[in-house]
Design a protein around this nucleic acid. Sequence first.
RNA 1: GCGCUCGUAGCUCAGCUGGAUAGAGCAACGGAUUUCUAAUCCGUUGGUCGUGGGUUCGAAUCCCGCCGGGCGCACCA
Length: 611
Amino acid sequence: MLQTGICARPAIAPWRTAFCKICPRAFYRFTMETIQSLLQARVQAAVPGDWVVQVQPAADRRFGDYQTNIAMLMARQQKANPRQVAQSILERIAVEDLCFPPEVAGAGFLNFKVRPEFLAARMLDLSKDPRCGIGAVARPKKMVVDFSSPNVAKPMHVGHIRSTILGDAIARVAEFLGHAVVRDNHIGDWGTQFGMLLLGWKRELDPEALQRDPLSEMERLYKLVSARCKEDPATLEAAREELVRLQGGDPENLGFWKEMIRLSQGQFDAVYGRLGVRFDVTLGESFYNARLKGVVQDLCDRGIARESEGAFCVFSDESVPPEEDPFLIRDREGWRPNPALVQKSDGAANYTTTDLATLEYRMEEWNPEEIVYVTDGRQQLHFRQLFAVFRRWKPGSTLRLAHVWFGTILGPDGKPFKTRSGETVRLSELLDEAEERAGRVLAEKNPDLPEAERLEIARLIGLGAVKYADLLPNRQSDYVFSWDKMLSFQGNTAPYLQNAYVRIRSIFRKAGCGVPQCAALDLGTEPERDLALKLLQFGEVLPQVLDDYRPNLLANYLFELANAFHTFYEACPVLKSEGALREGRLLLCDNAARVLQCGLGLLGIGVPERM
RNA sequence: GCGCUCGUAGCUCAGCUGGAUAGAGCAACGGAUUUCUAAUCCGUUGGUCGUGGGUUCGAAUCCCGCCGGGCGCACCA
C-alpha cells in the first residue's frame, strides 16, 4: 500500500525517461539535460545494466556536488568490498568533461565535483532557455486533477484552501511539464442539505439580505432550519418533502436550486479570480444524477454490489489479505464486513455512487491515464473503497487513480483553525486579512510607494504568503497557521523569495540595461558557483514534484535558491564590477530572477517588481 | 476495539522510499551597512530522532511491541 493511496502501478518517474525524444520542436532546441541525469547516465555506462544507478545531490558540501552509493549496493549483493567495487567503477567511468576526477570516499561513495567551466557553459544555455532548463516529458499524459470542490450555498472557508492551492500547484506543474491536464471542480450541488435550504428559502428568505450578501443569507437559512429540524420533527419532515420535490423535478424547487447555484458560482468565481486559480470544467454532483441508477444496476448485474438491510452495498471479494481489504474491519470477534454503500435503503444513491459515475463520465469524455483527487486525509477509507470498487467494475482499465490527501490547518491552540468565536474562517476574509497585513508591513517598510502600487504589491505578497505557507509543509502534516510567520520577511516565507526577485529587478533598473550577451562566464567565487549549480538543479527538482504530488519539494528548492542568491548578492557586487565580470554577474542575476519567477509561478505565486 | 496517520532542537517544520558527523527557519547570543533595498548576510548555542526490541556493513527512514496525540470506522460528503 503506497502512502499516497495510489491505485495501480505508479508510472515510471517522468524525469527518468525525459530525454526529450518526443518533445515539441519549439522546446527541443532549448531543453537541457540536468547534470544529475548526465552523471547518472555516465555511471550507468560504467556498471552492468541490471543495476539502476541513482546519482543524488551530495548530502554535505565537503563531499562535492553529487554522489552515488551504487558501489555499496553492488558490493552487498556480490559480497565484495564496497570501496573496491567503487574503485573499479571509477576506472571505467568517463566524466572528465563534467567533473574533476571523482573520488571514492567513506564506505564506498563516489563523489563528483562539477567543473566551473561546465557550470558556466550551462549558465549560458540557461540564459537562452525560456523554460528555465525544464524539458517537457517524453510521454505526455492526459490527467484529470479533481480539486477544491466547495459546496453550493455555503461560503468557502479555510477547509477549502489546501485542496485549492495544492491542486492548482500540481496542475500547474503538470501542465508545465507538458501533460494534458483537465482541471475539474466537482462542486457539492446536490444532497440532503437542499431540503433544508429550500424550506428556509420559502419560509424565511430575506430578499434584501440575499441581494447584499447571498452566501451569508443562504448560510443563515441553512443554520436556522437545521437547528429547527433537530428539535421539531415537523420541520424535519417538511425539509424532507422539499428534497423529495427537488429530486422529483418540481419546477419551483428546481428554480430556487438553480438560483442558489448561480449565486454560489459568483462567489466561487470571485475567490478563484483572486487566487488566480482556473478550472476547465465545473461539474457538480447533480450532473451525474442521471447515471446513478445505471451504475447501481450495473454493479448488481455484475455481482459486485448486493442488497443488504435494504441498501445496496459492495462487500469484500476476498481477493486481498484481510489486512489490506478496505471492505473488512476487525473487532473482538474477528473480521467483519465494512461495505461501501452504493444505494441507501431509501433508494437514494450516495457519494461512492456519484464518484463512480463521475469516473465513468471522465473515462468516456477524456479517456485520461490518470485522475488525481486532492482532498483531506479523512477521506482515505472512502477513496480506498472507491478505487477498489472501480477495479472490480472496470477490470480492464489501466487508469491510474491517486488520492492526494493533506492534513488539517491548525490554530495557535493546536486545534483546527477557527475564528476567536469558534466560527469557521471564511476564505474571502482570510484573503482580505492577508492583503491588509501585507499592506501594513509594506507601508512601514517602504512608505514612499504610491497607494495604488502598494495595494497591488500587498495583494501579491499577501496571497503569496498564504499560498506558500500552505505549500511549504509536507502536505500530509497538519500545520499551524500563523500570520506572523507567513508574512515575515525573514526565514522561509513567500516575501523572502519575492524579495530576492525584487532585488534583482532593482539591479537591472539601476543598470539601465537588459541581459548582456555573454560569450563566456567565469564563476570565480564560491557564491557564484553555488548559485549557478543551484539554478541548474531546478530541472532536477521540478519533475520530482509530480512523483508523489509534493509541491513542498519545489518550495524548499526555491528557498534554497533565494538563499544562494542572497549570499551571492552580499559577496559579489554586480554594478560595481566591470567588464566581463559585471556582464557575467548580470547574467547570473537574470537567470536567478527567471527561475524564481517561473518556480513561484508554478506554485501560483506572483512576483512584484519592487516591494 | 480496529484502521489510517503523526511523534525529530525551546517553537514551527524538512529529511528526496536504507547511507557519511540528523538539517532549516524562528527564538537567544555575537558580528557585518559612507551599499546593487539590512525586507539581507556571516557566525555561536541548541537534538539518546516518543520508547523497547529486531533486520545489516549502516536505521529518523524498514519490521514487531509499547506510550502519547490527531482523524476515521455502512445509510453525510
